Simulated assay, not measured.
Amino acid sequence: MNIANLLTALRLVLVPVFLLVLFAGDGHEFANRIAAFTIFAVAVITDRLDGQLARKYGMVTEFGMLADPIADKLLIGSALIALSMLGDLPWWVTVVILVREIGITVLRFAVLRRGVIPASRGGKLKTMVQAVGIGLFVLPLHAWPPVWHTTAWVVMGLAIVLTVFTGLDYLVSAVRDIRRAPREPNPTQ
């Protein structure tokens, strides 16, 4: 264990805590939404820190390589599903983002033996914009001026565009890499 792995583990623990706080009461109480936003923000910050620390100080481990993306997907996925269940975010938004995330994860496993599909700058930007958009929707927007709701939708709209664009970019890159890779000899010939 190292600090990067501890931050990843903390994020995994924060996911159910975030959900419990978000759904406390009727799911729309002002104080609970602020507390849920705070927990979500801390979890997002740990995502940023663990990767930076692991790369900078040579703390990259198998646990981190496996647990970090799982923690990311759990945090983003559970927040989207929870917000849709509470009626704060339309289900189509959740479906679009989750289909892309699951599709890219499956694609990465499919091409794993030919190499790793690294995270692109666009993918990292997409993750950051998704986190900001989700964070805004976690806030008690019903109690704030309408400009906050509009801002949340503008950021979420950008997140959806980046989600689709980067998903297509990954798909094109993977297909191109598969076509370029040398074919393994067929032992039956």
Score class of each variant (00 low, 15 high):
84 S>H: 03
94 T>C: 05
84 S>R: 05
74 L>P: 05
75 L>E: 12
68 D>F: 03
40 F>S: 02
75 L>R: 11
62 E>I: 11
33 R>N: 10
56 K>E: 12
91 W>A: 09
38 T>F: 15
100 R>C: 10
37 F>T: 12
41 A>F: 06
64 G>A: 14
64 G>P: 01
55 R>I: 11
76 I>S: 10
80 L>F: 13
52 Q>A: 13
98 L>Y: 11
94 T>M: 08
82 A>V: 00
52 Q>R: 13
60 V>M: 03
76 I>A: 04
65 M>D: 10
94 T>W: 07
65 M>V: 13
74 L>M: 11
101 E>D: 13
95 V>Q: 01
93 V>M: 06
35 A>S: 05
46 T>P: 08
96 V>Y: 14
95 V>I: 15
97 I>G: 04
66 L>A: 12
95 V>P: 01
94 T>F: 11
57 Y>R: 15
54 A>R: 11
42 V>H: 08
65 M>A: 15
81 I>P: 09
66 L>K: 14
62 E>Q: 08
97 I>H: 07
51 G>P: 01
79 A>R: 01
65 M>Q: 14
98 L>E: 10
68 D>K: 03
71 A>N: 00
37 F>V: 03
85 M>F: 14
32 N>E: 10
62 E>L: 12
48 R>D: 14
95 V>F: 04
94 T>P: 07
59 M>C: 10
69 P>F: 05
72 D>S: 05
78 S>E: 04
34 I>Q: 03
67 A>H: 05
50 D>V: 02
91 W>Y: 14
80 L>Q: 08
33 R>H: 02
80 L>Y: 07
86 L>Q: 09
96 V>D: 00
50 D>M: 08
74 L>W: 08
91 W>V: 11
79 A>I: 06
68 D>V: 07
87 G>T: 02
56 K>N: 14
85 M>G: 13
32 N>L: 13
58 G>E: 01
71 A>Y: 00
36 A>H: 09
84 S>C: 03
34 I>D: 07
71 A>G: 02
63 F>L: 09
67 A>L: 01
54 A>V: 06
95 V>K: 03
65 M>R: 15
47 D>V: 02
68 D>T: 03
91 W>P: 11
101 E>Y: 03
62 E>V: 09
35 A>Y: 00
81 I>M: 13
32 N>W: 11
100 R>E: 06
54 A>Y: 03
89 L>I: 04
43 A>W: 10
73 K>R: 08
75 L>P: 04
70 I>E: 07
45 I>W: 14
76 I>Q: 06
38 T>M: 05
58 G>K: 00
68 D>R: 04
83 L>I: 09
44 V>Q: 04
70 I>T: 13
92 W>F: 15
87 G>P: 03
76 I>L: 13
97 I>W: 05
71 A>H: 01
40 F>V: 10
61 T>M: 06
98 L>T: 11
62 E>M: 09
92 W>Q: 06
44 V>S: 14
101 E>Q: 08
57 Y>K: 12
86 L>Y: 13
57 Y>G: 05
67 A>S: 12
45 I>D: 11
96 V>C: 12
83 L>F: 12
51 G>E: 02
69 P>I: 01
48 R>H: 15
86 L>V: 02
56 K>V: 08
49 L>Y: 05
88 D>H: 15
79 A>T: 09
90 P>L: 10
96 V>Q: 11
38 T>Y: 01
49 L>V: 15
61 T>F: 00
67 A>T: 04
78 S>I: 12
